[in-house]
């Protein structure tokens, strides 16, 4: 088994103006997804990210607020999961509940660098 990172991008929930009932429904879908991944022993963990952030960039580095030019593309959080292959990991990502609100999942294998013998 290899470790993979799911990186979630999508609109911030606060911009969606959800009613209490809709919030609960949205959350329930996430539990079910995590539940499914856990049942298959694929879920390792995950954490949300704060919306506020800084960017440090440039050849003479400057610090700016951001990188939130595109609100819809906000990096919202990540999961670490286990899978046999990148293909399986991508299959598992199909369970992500926020495709309908234009969210996306970037699936990346976490590289294990072997110690030289």
């Amino acid at each position: 088994m290899k470790d993979f990172l799911f990186i979630f991008r999508g609109p911030a929930y606060e911009d969606l103006n959800l009613t209490p009932e809709e919030s609960q429904a949205a959350m329930q879908k996430w539990y079910e997804w995590i539940g499914e991944l856990s049942a298959k022993d694929r879920y390792v963990g995950g954490e949300p990210l704060h919306k506020a952030g800084k960017m440090v960039h440039g050849s003479k580095p400057v610090v700016t607020d951001g990188p939130f030019a595109e609100g819809k593309e906000l990096l919202g959080g990540y999961f670490i999961i286990k899978a046999e292959s990148l293909e399986e990991a991508a299959q598992l990502a199909l369970g992500y509940p926020d495709f309908k609100i234009n969210g996306s999942v970037e699936v990346r294998e976490i590289m294990k660098i072997p110690m030289p013998a």
């Binding site: 329930q28 539990y31 995590i34 539940g35 049942a39 879920y43 963990g45």
Partner: peptide, 11 residues
Amino acid sequence: MSTGAEQPQQL
């Protein structure tokens, strides 16, 4: 980091 639940949790 949290550990995943065994069963889907239900509100």
